[in-house]
Design a protein around this nucleic acid. Structure first.
Lengths: 144, 144
DNA sequence: TTTGCTGCAAATGTTTTGCAATATC
DNA sequence: GATATTGCAAAACATTTGCAGCAAA
């Protein structure tokens, strides 16, 4: 069973219908694995093969997939939400955002674990999740 | 010279006019030092004393103050921008956001400095800034 | 008196919603 | 065939902008 089929099964298990629109959107995320796609991005890609699809359907599908923990809805601060496959290890998965070209790079690190523990103790705050974003210039943009 | 006067002076130095609207908005941030106010929040507060003020003026003033590095414009992911006095030490100033009551707490830490250096070397990414947010339950909400 | 600033209303851009038609199960 | 899902258009929401009048310097 490939990745696409596994995702379809997850929808099916939760009694959600497998519509062509949902299939196409799932496939898009598989094809654009490295991209951090906005609703509009997905709409633009999907419309090429499926011109009759509505933007509202894209939004509804993305919300659904985020609720099912298939996608993660992320706010990069550029005025729209972006989606990527949920890593299920969000604690060690962070983003490097280039302020010049807007590209988003990923990196893994577990340095924050000890910081979290310190905060829990010092502030009595029970931490569920965190978000760490670095802004700067990627290699290419530095060269220019 | 008190804080308010110092801020007025900064506007004056940059050739910006000291209008009553700007004064009132500055005072609001002094009075709500601990709050992370949205444009709508500021508008609601200011309108009590100054009913004729326009929302657009609030937005324009907040943008101006952010540009002058007096305020910092922050995206907490709740669908609107929020503003607070710029700390001038953003690298060590982070936020704890309670997912239940929405309150925002602050904390300081310099643990990320070494992580930043590692990223610069490993990824060739020139880091200018970072944002670190922790989501969880504050003490009070845990007790409920 | 000269700009810069304001308030208003209209425009913008993203996301959500109401609803009748449609497709999945 | 029942019900979830769709596409469309309109609404909602935060924010921005155009512009004529106004006010700070």
């Amino acid at each position: 069973m490939d990745r696409f089929q596994a995702l379809c099964k997850r929808l099916h298990e939760k009694e959600y219908k497998l519509t062509p629109q949902r299939r196409v959107i799932l496939r898009t995320f598989i094809n654009y694995e490295t991209g951090h796609l906005s609703a509009e991005d997905v709409y633009g890609i999907v419309k090429k093969q499926h011109p009759e699809i509505g933007l509202a359907t894209v939004y509804r599908t993305l919300d659904l997939l985020a609720e099912l923990d298939i996608l993660e809805k992320i706010n990069f601060g550029d005025g729209r939400f972006r989606y990527e496959f949920a890593s299920h290890d969000t604690h060690h998965h962070h983003h490097l955002i280039c302020v010049n070209c807007g590209q988003v790079f990923e990196f893994e690190d577990d340095l924050l674990d000890s910081l979290e523990q310190a905060i829990q103790i010092r502030n009595g705050f029970n931490i569920i999740d965190h978000q760490l974003k670095f802004y700067g210039l990627c290699k290419k943009c530095q060269e220019k």
